[in-house]
């Protein structure tokens, strides 16, 4: 039973990892940008939620109403004002600028909130669980996170394949130059993509803050999880990213079950194994 519980926990954890990864995947898909500050932006959202919750005495899930639009707006400005300038054939500028951004965000959070570990209180939700069978139960919160991840991915797929904006995303991703000939303002489209990605990051950040203790330094580890989920799942495929997240979550859960100190290592090793035997990932739709 312990093992079954562990694996189910891992699957549900995978939902959170998939949520981390979705924004990263989206941005890479549309503009071939890998944002090193991605994990730190998740943590930024967590702290923003903390500030809102403490300032307005609201329930963490309600804070989404403020945090999501705020992060989306920030994403638009960040992309339009800074990251658009780094796009081009050279991979160094976006990498190094987002690396610098990562350092700035971590230290700004440190300065504003201190290095203390924080946690958002979600009341009864945190401990509520559904009993499926004798000795086997699922936490309600992890289940909500998992379902939210599915909902987000489903929503993004709908935007991508059934709306004019999604068409613009796909066209710009295929051929940015010809997209301009159609009347698409690439700068604006990229900024919208970043806004959408940071909206997802906002949701991920709020759930992270409820689920675990967080502090300004945990961003980079989230980036690594997001990245691993994307690579395992295959580039350019959001549902693949969900599978990637689940595999990562399950690997970590199994590792933790064997020895608590092996949780992270097990996840990284699973990633490296996939990288060696199937470098393109499980369900790739595009080239790296």
């Amino acid at each position: 039973m312990d093992w079954l519980n562990a694996i189910v926990q891992g699957i549900l954890l995978g939902g959170l990892y998939a949520m981390f990864a979705t924004g990263l995947s989206l941005i890479f898909g549309v503009m071939r940008l890998v944002n090193i500050a991605h994990g730190d932006l998740i943590v930024l959202a967590s702290f923003l939620a903390l500030a809102v919750v403490e300032g307005f005495a609201m329930h963490p899930l309600v804070s989404l109403v403020v945090v999501v639009p705020a992060m989306a707006a920030f994403g638009y400005v960040l992309q339009r004002g800074m990251l658009n300038l780094t796009l081009g054939r050279d991979i160094l500028p976006p990498l190094l600028v987002t690396f610098g951004l990562s350092v700035i965000i971590q230290n700004a959070l440190l300065e504003t909130f201190s290095a203390d570990s924080q946690r958002l209180q979600a009341g009864a939700l945190e401990t509520a669980s559904l009993t499926i069978a004798d000795g086997f139960s699922i936490g309600v919160l992890p289940l909500i996170v998992f379902l939210a991840a599915i909902g987000i991915i489903w929503g993004l797929q709908t935007v991508f394949y059934r709306t004019a904006l999604g068409r613009a995303f796909r066209a710009t991703s295929d051929d940015a130059t010809t997209a301009r000939l159609m009347g698409i303002d690439n700068g604006h489209v990229f900024a919208l993509a970043m806004a959408v990605a940071l909206a997802v990051v906002a949701v991920a950040g709020v759930f992270l803050a409820i689920r675990t203790n967080f502090d300004p330094s945990i961003g980079p580890a989230r980036l690594l999880f997001a990245f691993e989920a994307v690579i395992i799942g295959g580039l350019g495929n959001l549902w693949g990213t969900l599978v990637g997240g689940i595999i990562l979550g399950v690997a970590q859960a199994i590792g933790a079950q064997i020895n608590p100190g092996w949780q992270l290592l097990a996840g990284h090793i699973a990633f490296l194994v996939v990288l060696v035997i199937r470098p393109q990932g499980l369900f790739p739709k595009m080239q790296g």
């Binding site: 004019a164 613009a168 295929d174 698409i184």
Partner: peptide, 29 residues
């Protein structure tokens, strides 16, 4: 992207259709 809005459109060399879009989506874009 502003030139197109003024009413000058181009059929680019090599056609350059968008592979991720269907025929109809290419037209719509």
């Amino acid at each position: 992207h502003r030139v197109v809005r003024l009413g000058i459109a181009m059929v680019p060399e090599g056609r350059r259709l968008f592979p991720s879009l269907s025929v109809e989506e290419n037209l719509l874009i």
